[in-house]
Design a protein around this nucleic acid. Structure first.
Lengths: 158, 158
DNA sequence: TCAAGATGCGCGTCGGTGTGCCCAAGGAGA
DNA sequence: TCTCCTTGGGCACACCGACGCGCATCTTGA
């Protein structure tokens, strides 16, 4: 299924106002509410829209510190990877975890209240992860870009 | 303002179903729709909820490759940082960009269709960034954790 | 004990949503 | 060239549900 410019406009608008009504969206996109409803349902059914979710202001919860953690395992055996991954999903402060190519290690993104809080997280969450050989942390001083969707998605023609 | 357990339950639910109605939410949380509506509005007014947004399935758009790019500048002068940051926000394939401590460089998260597509992005977007001394890319082989909100937010008592 | 904040119930209004039907445009085939 | 068929759009309508309000009740804390 191919998306035209109006589909992309609908998606772009929904990534901002997920609760917009059919009429509201129809006006912005330039369609009738009927046509819009059909297209929106098709986008949901075809899996382009995964979910509608509320975006929380994490700073409001005191989570102002982002830390990138690079982790190397003692062994790259399948069993070691499985053991590590089974535990890392349980860490409540970890929001992202990638298995990386190259040096064959993991990169985590951790959210903390401050540096002291990260020390606690390091002690109670990260240091308990199995098969870890080395942990290296870098603090994010500032966030320049934070997009859920790359703008390239909305830029296609048709 | 302090959040109690029911507020957290509301937030947890809304991060999953942003379009849930008051009645629907009220049943899940254990409140009347009136009380729930009041609390939800308070959460919005107090800034805990930033927005309601549709989550797109980026794989459906062919964006299956995540790349972590580490960039070092020629100079850490304020002017060099400003120049770099002004350009990096324009890169359509960049979804995250952090200014990092330590080696004083940037880390970007880039989404691409595949490795060939990343080569194009590297050529047309990244290599045109100003004041760059070194670019180092690592490919994510797999994503183990991907959460918008750390589970620690919802775990507090009260 | 009193007051203030929060809850629950009931109600009425408003708006969204979904359906059926018709129309316009474009493509295929005779 | 004409016609049929398909695809997508718009209009109108009706139903159902959400939403917000007022008021009584309950709880919490001073």
């Amino acid at each position: 299924m191919a998306l035209d410019r109006k589909d992309l406009a609908i998606l772009a608008e929904l990534t901002t106002n997920a609760r917009a009504s059919h009429t509201e969206l129809a006006n912005k996109v330039g369609l009738s509410s009927t046509a819009l409803a059909r297209r929106q349902k098709a986008l949901e059914d075809d899996g382009y829209i995964q979910a509608y979710q509320a975006a929380l202001d994490l700073a409001q919860f005191g989570l102002t510190t982002t830390v990138l953690v690079r982790i190397a395992l003692e062994s790259q055996s399948d069993e070691a990877l499985k053991a590590f991954e089974a535990e890392v999903v349980k860490c409540p402060s970890v929001v992202r975890c990638f298995l990386m190519s190259g040096t064959d290690d993991y990169i985590l993104i951790v959210l903390a209240r401050d540096i002291q809080d990260f020390e606690r997280i390091h002690r109670t969450e990260l240091s308990r992860l199995p098969r870890v050989a080395r942990v290296q942390s870098s603090f994010a001083l500032r966030e320049i870009v934070n997009r859920a969707v790359p703008t390239v998605v909305f830029g296609e023609k048709r």
